[in-house]
Design a binder for these strands. Structure first.
Lengths: 168, 168
DNA sequence: TGACAATAGTCGTTTAAACGACTATTGTTG
DNA sequence: CAACAATAGTCGTTTAAACGACTATTGTCA
C-alpha cells in the first residue's frame, strides 16, 4: 500500500494520490542517488553535476562543437544561463569557445584535451558508481525501471495544462 | 531498449551499463517533472521547492513541533543548513521557533496560521499537478513504478564503498 | 566533580544558480 | 533597402545553496 514511503517520511497521513506518491518517490530517489555522486565530483575535481554533464555532452559530440543552445537542449536540468556555466569551465581550461564564422551570433563550444583528461580520470568511477548504488535491485527490476522511466519521460504532461499534450 | 534515451540525449554512444542508464533517466525524469512544479511555487508564492517541502513536513507533524535536525532528516534533498532555510520562512511569518525548555540546545519549529493558509491555497494544485504530469502512464505502471522506486530507495548502496560496514 | 566528547544550532564567507535587461547578428517583408 | 522581428549569447544583480568554523548545551566517565 501507499503507506511505505509515508512511513519513511514519518508523515502521519498517506498520500492524496498514487501519482503524488510517485512524484515524491522520484524526487527522493533521484536526490539520494545523486548525493554521493555530487560529493565525489566536488571533492575530486571541484566539479558540479551540471558542469560534469556538460563535459560529457561535449565529449559525446566530438569532434563536432556545440552552440550554447544545443548544450542547453541536451542537459538533464535546463540551465537558463549556459554562458556562465561554460565560463567557469573555460576559465579552468576544460573547454574552449570559438565564434562561428557562418553565423557570428553563435559561439561553438568544444572540450579541450585537459577536459578530456579529467573525464578520463573519472571514467572508472562512472563505471563503478551506478552498480554500487543501484545494482542491488538486480537486472530484472533494473530493466523494468528503465522502461517505466522512459515511458514517463516520453509522455510528460504539462502543468498548468495548456491544451497541448505529450512530449515536445 | 537502451538506445531510446540515448537518442533523446543525442549521444552517439549508448550507455556503459544498464545501471548508468537508469541513473541518468532518474535524474532526467525527476528534473523534468519538478521543473513545472518549481515554477508554480516560485511564481505564485515565491517559494522554493525545499521551502515548500519544509512547510509540508511541519504541517504533517502538527501539532508536534520539530527540531531542525528532525526536519533535516525528513527532507527529500538533505540541506546542510536548515537554519537559513527556516530563517527565511520565519522572516515571512510562515513558521515560528521556540527554544525547547528541556534541552536548551534544540529549537522547535512549527508552522504558523499564515503558513497553513499558504499551503491550503496550494492544495488544489498539489492535487491536480501529479495527475496532469504523470497521469498518462496509467494506474498499472504507476503502481509498478512506486514499488520499484521504493525498492531502490530502501536498499541504496554506498559510494565509494565504505569498507567499515557490510561489504568490504 | 571536572574534563572531554557529542550534539544542536548559528553565522561568516565563498560559490553558483535564477531572473531579466541588454547587445549583436541574422532573417523577413513590404 | 529600410524597418522590424527573431535568435544567440552576454552581463548585472538578487537570491539561495554549500562549506566550515564557531558557540552553547548536554552527556559520559574516570
Amino acid at each position: 500500500m501507499a503507506t511505505t514511503l509515508a512511513r519513511t517520511l514519518k508523515q502521519t497521513k498517506p498520500f492524496a494520490s498514487r501519482e503524488e506518491e510517485v512524484i515524491l518517490a522520484l524526487q527522493h530517489t533521484a536526490a539520494r542517488v545523486l548525493e554521493p555522486w555530487a560529493r565525489l565530483l566536488k571533492t575530486r575535481f571541484q566539479l558540479t553535476v551540471s558542469q560534469y554533464n556538460v563535459l560529457r555532452i561535449l565529449r559525446g559530440a566530438r569532434p563536432t562543437r556545440l552552440a550554447c543552445r544545443e548544450i542547453s537542449d541536451r542537459m538533464v536540468a535546463r540551465d537558463p544561463d549556459v554562458t556562465r556555466l561554460v565560463d567557469r569551465l573555460a576559465d579552468r581550461g576544460l573547454v574552449d569557445r570559438v565564434r562561428d564564422r557562418g553565423d557570428r551570433r553563435v559561439v561553438e563550444v568544444g572540450i579541450t584535451d585537459a577536459g578530456l583528461a579529467m573525464l578520463q580520470k573519472l571514467d572508472a568511477d562512472v563505471d563503478r558508481f551506478p552498480r554500487a548504488v543501484i545494482g542491488h535491485i538486480g537486472p530484472r527490476r533494473l530493466g523494468q525501471l528503465a522502461t517505466l522511466l522512459q515511458d514517463v519521460l516520453s509522455d510528460l504532461g504539462t502543468f498548468p495544462p495548456d491544451g497541448a499534450r505529450g512530449g515536445r
